[in-house]
Structure formats: structure tokens, C-alpha cells
Amino acid sequence: MILPPILVLILLPILLLAACAPQATRIDGFRSKGPIYSNAVLDLTALAGRWTQVAAFSATGAAGCAPGAADFTAAPGGLVLSGRLCLNGESLSYRGPMAFTGPGRLTPAARAPQPLDREWWVLWADTDLRTVVIGTPDGSFGFILNRGGALPADRLVAAREILDWNGYDIGRLALFR
């Protein structure tokens, strides 16, 4: 079928505009493409201690498993993690070294289950280091850890804002109660 020239002149700009329009920015996981920032000034050894998981991303918006915990111990060149986390409704465990791989970034240095096997970025920590937000550039996971009791509303708001600013779909953030 050959289109009349006038129709081509009308449709061509529309098709060109459609081709230039931003495409879907989702990537695999829970965040969209775009910049993500790790906390470059945080001394990662300050993470040493016991943390309780208070939130994580889930495709269903519901936790799907019990909240996890992470115990970090200082070690030469990094930390040692003994932890179990609920990520996307699945309970995942890792016990082993975490190497410092960049400012505000650490990576399991031993075999870890997917998606724990990739670089973890500390996106935010409150000034007293009671709450920390961790995510990944590929958006495969993101979670909030807290220590010293329940997570106050102001720190939850701050953590959600940081996740949103880093491209996470906070509508899929599941809180553990």
C-alpha cells in the first residue's frame, strides 16, 4: 500500500517524535536507569556491629519473608558479614568477607548467592550511624538496615527520599513490622 504524499508529511514528524521520545527507563530490578550515588565520605568500618533489616524491595510490595539481620565485623581491607536478608520475598544468607571496592561500596569477596554477589552501595547513613540504606546500580536489590531499636519516622522518610532520588521505585518498598 502506498501512502498519499500528504499523509506521509503528516505521519513522518509524528513517527520521528515518537522515536525520539524517552524510552522506558526501567532496568532489571527495582530502580530505573540513571545516576546512583554511594556515600563517598562514610568510613565503612563504622558499619561494624549488628543491624536489623527494616525494609526491602519486593515485586509484590509485600515482604514475603521475615526481616533479616546483618552482623559486620572489621577485618583487614574490609568487613566480614554474617547475615540473612529478605530480598524480593526470598531469604538469602551470606557469611564471609566484604571487600571495600570503592567509596561507600563493598562487595562479597567469597561466593555469595545472587543477587548478593554484586557490589553493594551504601546510599545513605544518618549522622549517628543508626540507619543505613544499601542498594545496587543494577537495582537488583535495595534495603534499609537499622540498629538500636525501632526505625523512627523521620529516618524512614529520609531513607525513602534517598532511595527515590537514586531511582528506586519506592512503591515496591516493603516495610517489616
Results as ranks from 00 to 15, higher is better:
A48F: 01
L106K: 00
A18E: 02
G148H: 13
R155N: 06
R155F: 01
L173H: 03
A48D: 14
P5E: 09
L12E: 00
R160A: 14
A109D: 12
A159P: 01
L12A: 13
G64V: 09
A110N: 07
G68Y: 03
L16Q: 04
D28I: 09
L85K: 02
I162G: 11
A21R: 13
A150T: 10
G83D: 02
V122L: 08
T73K: 08
R84K: 06
A24K: 08
L16F: 11
S82H: 10
A19V: 09
W120E: 12
D43Y: 00
T107I: 01
D169F: 11
S93G: 07
L145R: 02
V132S: 10
S93E: 07
L44F: 12
R155V: 02
F30C: 07
L9M: 12
D138K: 00
R84M: 14
D43K: 00
L156I: 06
T60S: 11
S93W: 03
L175H: 09
G149R: 06
R50T: 12
G77M: 13
T136H: 10
G135A: 14
G64E: 01
G61N: 07
G64C: 07
A56I: 07
G49P: 07
R26S: 07
E161A: 15
A19G: 08
L3W: 15
T52A: 15
Y37W: 09
M98G: 09
T25Y: 06
T136N: 11
E119L: 00
